[in-house]
Design a protein around this nucleic acid. Sequence first.
DNA 1: CCGAGCTGCGCG
DNA 2: AAAGCGCGCAGCTCGG
Length: 568
Amino acid sequence: MPAASWVVLGRADSTVVAVSLDRSGAELARVHVADLPAWVSSQEGATAPRWVWNDTPAWYAPLLAAGVRVSRCHDLRLSHAILRDSELAPHAASLRAATAWDAASAEEIAPKPTLFELDGAAPTGVPHDVDEVIAEFARQQQALDAADEGRLRLLLAAESAGAIIAVELRAAGLPWDAAAHDELLVALLGRRPSGGGLPAKVQDAAERVRAALGDTSASLDSPPKLLRALHRVGVLVESTSQWELQGQAHPVIAPLLEYKKLARLLSANGWAWLDTWVHEGRFRPVYVPAGVVTGRWASSGGGALQLPRQLRPVVRADPGWRLVVADVAQLEPRVLAAMSRDERLAGAARGRDLYEGVVSSGAVATRAEAKIALLGAMYGATTGDSGRLVPRLRNGYPKAMRLVDEAARVGEEGGHVSTWLGRTSPSPSEAWVGAQRRAAEPDAREADETRARRWARDRGRFTRNFVVQGTAAEWALAWLADVRIRLAQFPPVGEEDAAPASGPAFATRPHLAFFLHDEIIVHTPAVHAEAVADAVRDAAAAAGRLLFGDFPVDFPLDLRIADTADKP
DNA sequence: CCGAGCTGCGCG
DNA sequence: AAAGCGCGCAGCTCGG
C-alpha cells in the first residue's frame, strides 16, 4: 500500500463516518453531513488521503459544490466492475456474485446529485453504509493481493482519477458563447420561429424538395414515406441516407441533402438544445466514466460525444482566458504498436505522422491507403479496399498484426481478451453460446452453421477492437489524470487578472473543460497558456511511460492555443 | 399514451 | 465507395 493514507467514507444512521485504513481500522471521525465539506477540506490540507467511497459523483459533486476539491480517491463501484471481470484477477470470486455493487452510479440514476439526503430514503444504487463499504474494500484488496498485479492497481487508480475528473468537468463546463451559437443558427436556418413551425430556410428547403417531388404534402422526416416518394419520381435508392443519395442525378437531390443538413442542425443542436444544455456561458454534459464496455467514457444527455465540428467556433474562452485544445494523432495504432512491442510500427510512428511512416516503410503506396489498412486491421475489415490492404501490413508489422489477429481468434471461440492494464471483455451472450453449440451438433442445419459463423466473426471483430480501443482509453485516462495534477500546481488568478465568468472555485486556475476519447480542452488564464501547453505535452509523454515503460513509442499532440475550439 | 425498435446522422 | 469497431440522440413506426 502506498505511503499516502486511505480513508473510507460511509454512512452510519444520519452521520458520515470516516475510517482510517492505516491504523487497523480505527474510526477517524464521525461528522455530521453539514460539516463534511469543512472536515474533508481540513484532511486534504493535512494528509491528502485517498478517499475510499462507494460512488464518486454521489460524494464529490456535493463536495465540489461546497467548494472542496479532493486530490484522489478509490471508486469502489468502478473498481468492482473491473476486478469482477478481469482475467488478471482470477481469485476475485468474492466479487462475482451479483450484488448491489453492480448497480448503476447515482449519477446515471439522478444526474442532478442531491447533497446527502439525511431524512430521505436511502438512494438507490450501490451500498453506502460504512460497514458494507469497508467489507467491499477488503474484498477488492484481497483480490488485488492474490493477483499481485501492478497493472490492475494502476488501472483502478486511473479509473478513479477519471471519476473525479468527470465530476469536475461537469462542474466547470465548456465555455460556450450562446449568442454566437444563436447567430450561427439564424444565419443557417433563419430566425427562430416564435410559435410552432420551421425556421424560414428549413421551410424553404423543404418546399423545394416537395416541388421537385411534385408532391406538396410529401413527408420528409419519415424514411419509409420519403423513400416511396423518391421511387415515384424515379430515384431508385434503397435507403434515404446521404451517402446513397449523393450518387444520384435528380433535381430533388440537392435540396433534399440541404434539408437534411439543416433539419439535423435544428433538431440536434438548435435552440432547444441551447436552452437545455447551455447556462451561464457553459455547456455541462454528463460524463459517464467507463460507460462503454471497452472502458471509454460515454455521456448521458447533451451529446458531449458528438460535439459537431460545425459548432466548435462557438466554444469560446472567457475574456482574458484562452483554450488549449489538444488531441493525440493516431492514438490507437500507436497504442497497438506499444502493447504488441512492435518496434517497426513504433518506429514508423516516431516523431511524425504514423501513416506517412507506414508509407515510407514501403508496405503501401499512399497515406490514404495506410490509414484504411490500419483502421481495417484494428476493426476487422474483410472486404473492399480496406480488406485488400490489410494483408500487406502482415509482413511489415507482424507483431502488431499478430496481436489483433489473436484477439479476434479468441473472440470467435467465445473466449475473453484483456486490455494492457487488465480490463477484460464481457462474456458472450447465452444466445451466442447456444448458437455455437447448435451449429456444432452432428445434425446441425446449414442455416444454423451460417448464423453461428457470422456471429463468431462479429464477436471476433469486437474482441479485436476491444484490446486496442480499451488500451487507448487507459492511456487517455493516464493523460487526463496527469494533466489534472499538473494544472493544480498553477497559481490561482490574481486580483489584477480577469476572473472567469462562472464556475466552481477551482476554475480560478487552468482547468480541464472538455474530454472526448483522445482530445482535451483546457481553459486557462491567457498568461499561463504556453506553460499549460507544455504541461499537456509533458503529461502525454508521462502517460506513455506510465503504461509502456521505456518502449520507444511516442504520443505527439496536435495542439493549439486559441480563443475557440475550431479545428483548422 | 408509453416504450421498444429502427433509421439516420454525428462523434472518436 | 463507407467497408470494419465503439457510442448518443432525435424522430418515426408500431404494438400494447
